[in-house]
Design a protein around this nucleic acid. Sequence first.
DNA 1: GGCATAATGCAATATTATAACATAACATAA
DNA 2: TTATGTTATGTTATAATATTGCATTATGCC
Lengths: 175, 175
Amino acid sequence: MSETPDGVFVGSDHDHGNCVSTALDSAAAVCQRRGVRLTPLRRQVLELVWQSHQPIGAYAVLDALQANRRDDAPDGRTSAVAPPTVYRALEFLLGQRLIHRIESLNAYIGCVHPGARHAALFLICNGCGSAAELESATLLTAIDNAAADAGFAIERVAVEVAGQCPDCQGAVDVA
Amino acid sequence: MSETPDGVFVGSDHDHGNCVSTALDSAAAVCQRRGVRLTPLRRQVLELVWQSHQPIGAYAVLDALQANRRDDAPDGRTSAVAPPTVYRALEFLLGQRLIHRIESLNAYIGCVHPGARHAALFLICNGCGSAAELESATLLTAIDNAAADAGFAIERVAVEVAGQCPDCQGAVDVA
DNA sequence: GGCATAATGCAATATTATAACATAACATAA
DNA sequence: TTATGTTATGTTATAATATTGCATTATGCC
Ligand SMILES: [Zn+2]
Ligand SMILES: [Zn+2]
Ligand SMILES: [Zn+2]
Ligand SMILES: [Zn+2]
């Protein structure tokens, strides 16, 4: 009776290269439209954030950036990438609504509605680390109503639900 | 038309001593019932977390603990309190559901339903730093439904809404 | 008291994030 | 085209948050 049509969690089989290229293309379009610059660094960071459907920490991005530069350098000689470099790029991407920050993990994940102002619900698997971004009109209405009742003016909303995704529950069942 | 009967945000006038003593008494009862120990340290940390209705960081608790000890010491000579001391006490209090962690602030706040297993919604004021803990059946149902649709087994829920409380909106309006 | 367990003390270190200032890249107008 | 202002990045240092590992002390039970 339970249905997971395509599943909000992507399978291990899906064409992830497509996820990445779509995200990069959308980001370029959004930035173009807004007259802001998706510089090579920012684009690289966005690509790294999209390297999987698992939220990635700033320092993991930093390490990956570093590795990329070593690969690109003619002889492997490169200066180290420093934290502010990464944090500034992440801040830019957050500001343009191209990524989300997962507060409970101090980590970042690509946004599936790039550029759109919206409040999302995240399902975060404690088993495999994957996260799925959902929208629920009912949920947002409930939050709006609760805030309105309290006379509270909403600025930002974070809804983060941790647990086990369908695959990881299956793995446990088998054991 | 908008109503804030007593207001989910406590006023500056309320009897906060009562908040604290109620919280400490409830905590003692909960721990008694469960056969776990609300040691002097844990009790002190709980009291510090309840010192205001603003989420407090672990290191602020640490500093306050330190100050308390200096006051209590006969001559002011005391050893420093180390981070693990505070984090362990906070972990205990979280485990007993006597406090909540606000993920978006890396901070902690007293629970208004001590000991009860529940998912709360927090309204967090960016103006004054106060936070209000609410329950919304509609909201929790919406989250449960979204998770169920995805075949996701919930373990923990964090709903954190940042914005401006009624008082802080007023302050802006006046300006 | 002797023993097991739980709690705390303590030192070191890991992880996450920001401040402050210098340089480089880019745009545009004299 | 150089001058100039602006935005982006580099660089160094440090702040803020959190954990690991082991030693010591307190507590409860026999
Ligand atoms: Zn993908
Ligand atoms: Zn999973
Ligand atoms: Zn109070
Ligand atoms: Zn306020």
